[in-house]
């Protein structure tokens, strides 16, 4: 059975530090404004008691990738293991994929004049290593899961700020934080 690899983002552990995003930028030597992985602030009332909560997302390696449908040159492929790969050699920089992706994932590289996106570090995976963001998260809040094998019972497929998953069926899932007890003065 083919794999269905996806990110599992543990918001309960995430401290919103952006180390995932910056380690990715550093490892791939991206241009200063490019963000293959993004950390987004979630509403304070996410779990009831007010908290600072963040979610880290990159390419969602969707089951029905809109980027792949939009691309006129066919630069996108979905591998057997589910990873959506963008071939920069093919890309002509029309930017249509960036428009079509509900998550705005593909970004224009102003120097290469081509689009760029997270590849789930497939070359590292192929060599038995973890993606950089997974390996470098100080809280180990990002995992790679084969969703064909396991559906973590505590995972959800959508959080606020994350576009409707029914459009492209992203593989990314999230573990929501548990509310703690609070004694507040106001």
């Amino acid at each position: 059975m083919a794999k269905k690899l996806g990110f599992l983002v543990n918001i309960e552990r995430c401290i919103g530090c952006h180390a995932c995003e910056i380690s990715c930028k550093s490892f791939y030597q991206l241009e200063p404004n490019m963000r293959r992985r993004r950390v987004t602030e979630l509403p304070e009332n996410l779990v009831g008691t007010p908290v600072r909560a963040f979610v880290s997302t990159a390419c969602n390696h969707c089951d029905e990738p809109a980027c792949k449908k939009a691309c006129p040159v066919g630069a996108y492929t979905k591998r057997e293991d589910g990873i959506v790969v963008h071939d920069q050699n093919m890309c002509i920089g029309c930017q249509m994929c960036g428009k079509a992706c509900p998550y705005g994932v593909p970004q224009y590289n102003p120097v290469k004049k081509k689009m760029d996106k997270c590849s789930m570090c497939y070359d590292r995976l192929d060599e038995g290593q973890l993606p950089i963001c997974v390996e470098k998260c100080p809280l180990e809040a990002i995992q790679i899961v084969d969703y064909n094998e396991v559906q973590p019972s505590n995972a959800v497929s959508v959080v606020p700020t994350f576009a409707d998953p029914s459009i492209t069926h992203p593989t990314t899932h999230f573990i929501l934080p548990k509310p703690g007890k609070q004694t507040r003065r106001f």
Binding site: L125, G128, L130, V134, E135, V145, V150, P152
Partner: peptide
């Protein structure tokens, strides 16, 4: 790393 969900792939 110690990221090891049982579903963690047999990478590579």
């Amino acid at each position: 790393g110690s990221v090891s969900l049982s579903a963690l792939l047999g990478l590579g």
